[in-house]
Design a binder for these strands. Structure first.
Length: 317
DNA sequence: TTCCAGGGAAAGC
DNA sequence: GCTTTCCATGGA
């Protein structure tokens, strides 16, 4: 059974089509491979971690996705939850955007099938706390070193032989980490390492974890305040955690790439200035007027992916 | 060499 | 309050 057949079966189960080639993990595209035994698909994502889909009996799937391990979940339930299948991507893009920016829409149109994945909140927090002002290469190296040092070793038999992966570290593993050791994994950045340890302790104490569980009940601003109370988490990282880890599709993170397309595609003057908090908030409001409010982050991510791939000519790793 | 990468926070006006 | 500088490293 190959991936296409797997998808045609899931299509029957869900009435929805998921093109695995269009899935994004923390905004990064990646490829899936068929493994062994059959009905098993895995992929490297950020760091030395994997997503593994394994059919354990007809219609039921086992999912190993870094720290998120679910056994015996019906395929339909898994796909609905993990790939946001309750979302009709054709309905989330405002008509006025298609009309007012038809040239951009022509470019972005084919990116509608992009799917943002619902990821583990703790993993998203650590990953994006490693992502300040450096390139993806270094971010991946940091996360990779953290998983190898503090995660659990996993052996996987594949047609290419045995492969070794590491699960994402638990909050308690990082909460009890030694500062000097963790700093070796974070570009020798001791401030970043200390921030991650403090955040993990807050998560382990239940304080931050509870805020995550209740994140859908509060407004976005309250959620951002809770996240930003932790040193090392500012507005941008808080928005990334809300979007990727907590399913808040209204959260609209603005990074250097989003800033670029807000100017180049939409001519928003403020996008040429630096991202101070004031300007960050202003740009978000400006973007919401174009992209809508409820799904601003999800739509923004299609644009993000399109911008990097079509305009910046960046390759998926 | 210089600039730019998925920023945040402290320091300086 | 708002803006500039520092943190830290590797690749183009």
């Amino acid at each position: 059974m190959d991936i296409d057949k797997f998808l045609s079966r899931t299509l029957l189960l869900t009435d929805k089509r998921v093109n695995l080639n269009d899935t994004l993990f923390s905004g990064q595209s990646f490829s899936w491979k068929a493994g062994a035994p059959i009905h098993e698909y895995y992929s490297h994502v950020i760091g030395n971690s994997i997503i593994l889909l394994r059919e354990i009996k007809v219609g039921f799937i086992e999912v190993l996705s870094t720290s998120n391990y679910v056994i015996g979940l019906p395929i339909k339930d898994y796909l609905w939850r993990y790939f946001f299948l309750d979302l009709d991507e054709k309905m989330i893009i405002p008509d006025n955007f298609k009309q007012d920016f038809s040239d951009v829409w022509q470019l972005v149109n084919s990116y509608q099938t992009v799917r943002v994945m619902r990821q583990d909140p703790f993993e998203v927090m650590v990953t994006f706390m490693c992502a300040q002002g450096i390139g993806m290469h270094l971010i991946r190296r940091q996360v990779s070193m953290i998983t190898e040092r503090y995660g659990q070793k996993i052996r996987l038999e594949t047609p290419e032989g045995e492969m070794i992966f590491y699960s994402f570290p638990t909050p308690s593993a990082l909460a009890s980490a030694n500062l000097d050791e963790l700093a070796l994994c974070t570009n020798n950045n001791r401030i970043r390492a200390a921030n991650i340890i403090a955040m993990a302790r807050s998560f382990e104490s239940g304080k931050l974890a509870l805020a995550c569980v209740r994140s859908s009940e509060c407004d976005l601003e309250t959620l951002r305040e809770t996240l930003c109370a932790h040193s090392g988490i500012g507005l941008k990282i808080a928005d990334c955690i809300a979007l990727f880890g907590l399913g808040r599709l209204d959260a609209f993170p603005i990074d250097t790439h989003v800033k670029q397309y807000l100017w180049e595609w939409f001519g928003i003057e403020a996008a040429r200035k630096s991202l101070t908090e004031k300007n960050y908030r202003y740009l978000q409001e400006a973007a919401r007027k174009i992209l809508g409010n409820e799904y601003a982050g999800y739509v923004g991510h299609m644009l993000f992916h399109c911008w990097r791939k079509e305009v910046k000519k960046m390759k998926a790793f």
